[in-house]
Every structure is written in structure tokens, then in C-alpha cells.
Amino acid sequence: MRKIIATGKGGAGKTTIVATLSRLLARQGFSVMVIDTDPSMNLAMSLGVPFSTVRTLAEDKKEIHEQFYEDDFDGEEEGHTHSSNINIDAFLEKYQVTAKDDVKVVVMGTISEGGGGCICSYISIVKRLIDYLALWSDQYDIVIVDSQAGSEILGRGLAVNYDHNLVIAESFPKSMEVARHVLKLARDLNIKRQLVVVNKIRDGKELELVADELCLNGERTYPVRYDEKVIEADRMGSLILDMAPDSPVLEDIRNIMNVITADYEKD
């Protein structure tokens, strides 16, 4: 099972690119799950799934905690023992919903009350869920994590040894600053490949600007052109894939998909 994470500054376009990429991959015959770890939880809607139909992992934190972290602690000798299996496919039935092109969506969720603490434990659950899927399920070819804005998610170690980090950036200083930090943290986590996706390109000069500013160390840059129809689709709760299938944006995201699948063939 391949693992992809999308990172970058808020508003850079992570969710739109993840939603579109996941459906394009599914159309290529891959079995795809997307996991929304952004507390603003827009991914399901971008994939056309009404949020009211989604049960988030956070809603059942206590129950999941008991299931994932049961502490019988009955080891006989000093040292390390491995946890037992759980039926991950059965577990997922409660939390995954099906979007267009048969993409499955899981939403992490967020804090439900003011003063309710941090989201660390939810991220732990997602990390464990993905590790379980990789170890004990053959349901999915690819899991894509749509991360919360900023670089914090990588500080939490969620994406250790992932196959790809899609760093979604715009050619603005603030966006590039986040991208620079994300690239650094992802290198620390041994993510195999980083693709810097320069989004909302208007005149083509942005690609070079971003590459120069980020002092890339072997990472590749890919353009996604600006198209007003992306915003229009978003306003209508739709995706560019459905509203304007001839948009240049789709050509660009298809190109990124081809790079990713070619990388898989190389491995």
C-alpha cells in the first residue's frame, strides 16, 4: 500500500488537489482511500459527500482508544511485545464513506468543546489506522492524507516513511515559508519523494521563483495552472473534475498523477 501526504499553507489548495488526484487515481483502477486530518474537514464535501453522512474518528475517541490501546500488559519478560491484530476492515465500515469514482473517505474530526485539549490523540489514531491498513488489509492500493494547514502534522511523525509528500505551495512568501519548513521536516521523516506543486500559476514564472526560493535539494516542481472555474466549482460544492472536465487544472493534476504512478513502477 502506497502512502501520500499533502502538506502546505492553508488556502494553498491541498484539499482540491487531493480530492481531484484521488478520483483520477481511482479512474486509473487504483483502490484509493483519502483521510482528512484537517480540523476544518472540507475534503468530504470536496468529494461530494454530505458532511452529515460522515462519522468522524474524533466522535468515537473513547471507544476507539479502548479498541486500539487496550492495556492488558501481561507480558512475561522484560522487553518489547507487539500488539495483537484488530479487524481493521470491519472497523472501517463504520467510518468510511464512498465518494464518486469509488474513492473511500475517512475524516479524523476535531475537538468538540472549547478547552477540549489538543488533537494529538486523534492523529495517533489516524497513524495507527494507516499502519494497520498497511499491515493487515489489502483493501487499498493508495492512501492519501490531506493534512491540516502548516507543518505541524509532520512534527507529529504521522508520515514516517511515506512514499510521497505533495508540498502544495503558491508563489507568495508566506506560502513558500511553510513549504520550506515542510520540506525540511519531511526529509527528517524519510519520506521517499517530495513533489513541490506550485498551485494557481498565472504566467509561468512562478515555478522558477518557487524553485529558487526553496533551494530545492533534488525535489521536483510541478505547476497547476490557475482557473477561475476551480473557485466557481468550490462555491457550488462541486469539483473541477465534474464542472469543467476540460480545465487545464486537470491536465496538470493528471501530470502529477502520472509522475506518482511512474515512481511506483520504479520502486
Partner: peptide
């Protein structure tokens, strides 16, 4: 007894 994020335990 220590439990890590993956549910694996270490006994000291």
C-alpha cells in the same frame, strides 16, 4: 509497562 502509538508494549 509502556505502550507506544502502535499499541506495542515494553515492560521495564
Amino acid at each position: 509497562f509502556l505502550m507506544d502509538i502502535m499499541g506495542d508494549t515494553t515492560r521495564i
